[in-house]
C-alpha cells in the first residue's frame, strides 16, 4: 500500500518545525524559505494550514517538464525532481495547478516534495500530529487530487 502525507490543519499550531525539518533534509539548513512544505497562516480565522504536493495522479509538473527532469518514484509514488537534469525553465511551476512545485533562485532549479524517500522529515518533526504519513486510502486526498478537474464551485465564504 502506498502512503501519503495526511494533513490535518485543525491540529497545526504554526510552529514551523515541519518547514525547518524539510529545509534541513534538503538543504542542510533551517531556513524555512527553502522548505517544500509551507504553513499558511489565516490570521483572522485563527488557522494554520500546512500545504505541500499531494503527488497527484495527473502529475502536471512531470508531463510539462520538457527535459524529463521529473520522474516517478515507483516505490513511494512521489514525483521527484532530478536536479542535475532540471534546466530551471519553471514551466512545471505554472503547470502544477496546486502551486506546490517552486523555483529556488539560489540553485537555479525547482523543488517539490519527494516524500523523503518514504521517511518524511516533516511528519517526524511535527509535534502535534498535524502531519502524518499514512496509507494513501485514508488521506482523503483523492478529493483534493481530483479538484483540478472541477469547475464552477460555490463561492468561498470563509
Amino acid at each position: 500500500m502506498q502512503k501519503s502525507l495526511h494533513i490535518d490543519p485543525n491540529k497545526c499550531t504554526g510552529c514551523l518545525q515541519c518547514e525547518m525539518a524539510c529545509a534541513w533534509e534538503n538543504h542542510r539548513s533551517f531556513t524555512i524559505a527553502k522548505s517544500r512544505i509551507k504553513v499558511f497562516t489565516f490570521h483572522k480565522e485563527g488557522r494554520f494550514v500546512p500545504y505541500t504536493c499531494t503527488q497527484c495522479d495527473e502529475a502536471w509538473c512531470m508531463t510539462a517538464c520538457p527535459v524529463d527532469a521529473i520522474r516517478l518514484d515507483p516505490v513511494t509514488g512521489a514525483k521527484i525532481v532530478l536536479e542535475p537534469t532540471c534546466v530551471g525553465c519553471k514551466v512545471c511551476t505554472i503547470a502544477c495547478p496546486f502551486g506546490t512545485i517552486n523555483y529556488v533562485a539560489s540553485t537555479g532549479k525547482v523543488q517539490k516534495c519527494d516524500l523523503c524517500d518514504g521517511e518524511p522529515a516533516c511528519a517526524k518533526a511535527c509535534p502535534t500530529g498535524a502531519i502524518t504519513y499514512v496509507d494513501a486510502d485514508w488521506t482523503g486526498l483523492g478529493k483534493m487530487r481530483q479538484w483540478a478537474g472541477k469547475t464552477d464551485t460555490n463561492p468561498a465564504t470563509v
Binding site: 499550531t13 504554526g14 510552529c15 514551523l16 525547518m20 480565522e45 485563527g46 509535534p127 502535534t128
Partner: peptide, 19 residues
C-alpha cells in the same frame, strides 16, 4: 478562544488566538 498558536519552532504552543 479559537485555538492555540505557536511561535517559531515552539512545541509548547501556549499562544492564545481569540475571536
Amino acid at each position: 478562544l479559537v485555538t492555540n498558536g505557536a511561535c517559531f519552532g515552539c512545541t509548547i504552543a501556549c499562544g492564545r488566538i481569540s475571536r
